[in-house]
Design a protein around this nucleic acid. Structure first.
Lengths: 209, 209
DNA sequence: ACCTGAACACCGTTCAAGT
DNA sequence: ACCTGAACACCGTTCAAGT
């Protein structure tokens, strides 16, 4: 009984070591990335973790609560990605364009993830408050970047919220069309569309003179 | 045996009168509008029609084939809506703006319908050829309207396809955000955003001078 | 507190059988 | 040809029971 701290043996069905909740989220995300949202089953994540298929109900009210948590994490990651792109490209016009590109890239890199974040899977469902909060925080990054550009006279003085929604719709629209296979399927084409969009967004589609 | 043409009695389980297929599509659409895509069950549409729940397999390969047909019909309706808006507003700049408004209104008026039309429900699925065709036809309306405006020097001479994808992304983005409850939930606000978008689309977001 | 196993009420789909 | 009914292999969720 000397080396007491080290357990004699740990059978592989030992995810109760403290954070089954985190493990469930992680396993769910992996399943989603592999099989899509429709392929996510509670029984499946239970198996992955060597845990009963009902163990999850100790940590989440139901399947949609688990999905909401996954989505909230997605928005955290997205926000970090956007901030990084904006700052690394030196803010301003270049930074803003980089942010737009980063948004679309995030979506096409994690299509199932992105789909969970936006209504598709939670259609008509009561939205989770944490999810609301993280979504709002990600949106705020865009608003802040716009206001900063307005102060520097890089963007016209429209109502920032309306402007932000408009631009969000553009990148979200490109992202969704790409994910749903309605754009030429190579990433280069999507990238090029995103770049084109950020450019036309600046100057508009009216003729040159 | 005189009045031979009129059947003696027709029990209400008589949808086999010739077009069960059309009846199935219609019933599916009604279910989707009432309960959302997730609420659509083959057993349910069978019940609605007083028909066995497997009768449908005579007319569709599976559930996703039924959904694809519903979606294709949706694109037909959307195309008609767009053409009507474009022509009734006299084409040109005004017509184009009306078309954008009509697109977004179609989506928020038929949210579940719209969701079936775009990947959400068919995620990762082989796409139906008829669906492809109808989707492409609806898109073509937008391309044509753009080319016509380019000829009239109302729109700058960019690559029409790229331009069309950009503008499609805008209205699709607004539509999806609205449907998924990520915009202020009143239709007036969505309308106002759509109008703002069509305007900024023209002039861009760069400062006035 | 945390987890299990059986049970329940649902699904989509297949298939032999009826007309 | 077209439809039925039973059966199969799945679901999410509940709940009494174990530790």
């Amino acid at each position: 009984m000397g080396m007491a701290r080290r357990p004699a043996r740990k059978p592989r069905d030992q995810y109760h070591h403290g954070d089954l909740r985190a493990a469930l989220i992680h396993a769910a995300l992996r399943r989603i990335q592999r099989d899509g949202v429709a392929g996510l089953t509670l029984r499946g994540v239970g198996e992955d973790l060597g845990v009963s298929r009902t163990a999850l109900y100790r940590h989440f009210a139901d399947k949609s609560a688990l999905l909401a948590t996954v989505a909230a994490q997605g928005f955290m990651t997205l926000r970090a990605t956007l901030v990084a792109a904006w700052e690394q490209a030196g803010k301003g016009r270049r930074g803003f364009e980089a942010m737009g590109q980063a948004y679309v890239r995030f979506a096409i890199t994690n299509p199932s993830y992105y789909r969970v974040m936006f209504g598709g899977a939670l259609e008509g469902l009561a939205r989770d408050p944490e999810l609301e909060r993280e979504g709002a925080a990600a949106f705020q990054v865009l608003v802040d970047a716009l206001v900063e550009q307005q102060r520097a006279r890089l963007v016209r003085a429209d109502e920032p919220l309306q402007l932000a929604r408009f631009i969000w719709a553009i990148v979200h629209g490109i992202a969704m069309l790409a994910i749903d296979g309605l754009l030429p399927p190579d990433n280069v084409a999507v990238d090029s569309l995103a770049r084109f969009a950020m450019e036309r967004l600046r100057s508009g589609i009216d003729p040159g003179r």
